[in-house]
Computed example of a mutant assay.
Amino acid sequence: MKHVAILGASSQIAKDMIRLMAQQEDTCMQLYVRDLVPVQQWLGQLGLGGRCTLHLYEAYGQHEHDAVINFVGVGDPQRAAWMGASIFGITQQYDDMVMAGLMQHPHRRYIFLSSGAAYGSTFLEPAGPKTQAAISINSLTPQEYYSVAKLYAECRHRAHPELAITDIRIFNCFSRTQDIAARFFITDIVRAIRDNTVLQTSPDYMVRDFMHPEDFHQLVNCILNGPRRNGPVDCYTLAPVDKPTLLEAMQLQFGLQYEFVGTAATVVNATGTKPHYYSLNRQAEALGYLPVYSSLDCVTKETASILGRDIF
């Protein structure tokens, strides 16, 4: 039986992982959160109480586990903007917690949820195997705080090559459990469809890669079940999607109404404007990861479920 600790278990991406991992008969989960009651209610609604134990963060380290996944972070760009410099302390606090445990239990595996933002805030072209992180060190802006926090954590992890630490760089995820009130471009689209309003968006071209929860779950299992390693992997799907294609598909399938107004400056970009925010890195192939969904598959399938039109 494999015992997996999950920090930040109340986040949307963590809940998707928990729901899928609960189907694994060989896995028990320890969930760590700041507030027990909402997660207890969620587990009860899904009938997952018997597959998990629930703990406050203060209890981390008191129960043996084979691996730990650190989901603690910011999932909403608006919240990232509000948090500002506090993102540094929060990221390090929970990373320190896990690292202290690894020092005592070096056999343990650690998966840290990093971000494509660790490369920097420009993305004038997609990330690739030779892409270097770009930080404006002499004129650091609040939009770069999130990037620097993730980059710093990754650097700390590489400084311990003897430990099995994998940093998963997430670019974009989307699922039927997404908080539709969050300020993402894709949630703006879904709200416009749901409310029968006209989406106002800038004409700026961009490309995004939306990962489906099942593909993310597959990637995590490839890391947990594969050889011990210390290094990053970038998330990717069968294919990214550009903005015109996405808008046209959502109009055709769901009746999205949209119009182009203003510029990218009018959009919430807490970590910087990124025209090509996706990766061409394929390190995960060596671990056996083979994505099932394209970005457009993910968005249309999960949007259909959100809107109650799940015909897939």
Rank of each mutant, 00 (worst) to 15 (best):
G128V: 08
G128W: 08
G128Y: 12
G128S: 14
G128A: 13
P129I: 11
K130D: 04
T131D: 04
T131L: 06
T131E: 08
Q132S: 07
A133N: 02
A133D: 05
A134V: 14
S136C: 07
I137T: 13
N138F: 11
S139Q: 08
S139M: 05
S139F: 02
S139E: 07
S139I: 04
P142G: 02
P142S: 04
P142A: 06
P142Q: 03
Q143E: 15
E144H: 09
Y145H: 14
Y145M: 11
Y145D: 07
S147W: 13
S147G: 05
V148N: 05
V148L: 15
A149R: 10
A149Q: 09
K150G: 11
K150A: 13
K150Q: 08
L151R: 05
L151I: 12
Y152D: 03
Y152I: 11
A153V: 13
E154K: 02
R156G: 02
R156C: 12
H157M: 13
H157I: 05
R158M: 14
A159Q: 15
A159L: 10
H160R: 12
P161E: 06
P161W: 02
P161F: 02
P161I: 05
A164M: 03
A164V: 00
I165M: 11
T166I: 03
D167E: 10
I168P: 01
I168H: 03
R169A: 10
R169G: 11
R169T: 06
I170D: 10
N172L: 08
N172T: 06
C173E: 01
F174D: 03
F174V: 00
S175T: 12
S175A: 06
R176G: 08
R176I: 00
T177Q: 11
T177F: 06
Q178V: 02
D179F: 00
I180Q: 10
I180W: 01
I180L: 15
I180M: 15
I180F: 04
A181K: 14
A182P: 03
A182G: 06
R183G: 00
R183S: 11
F185N: 07
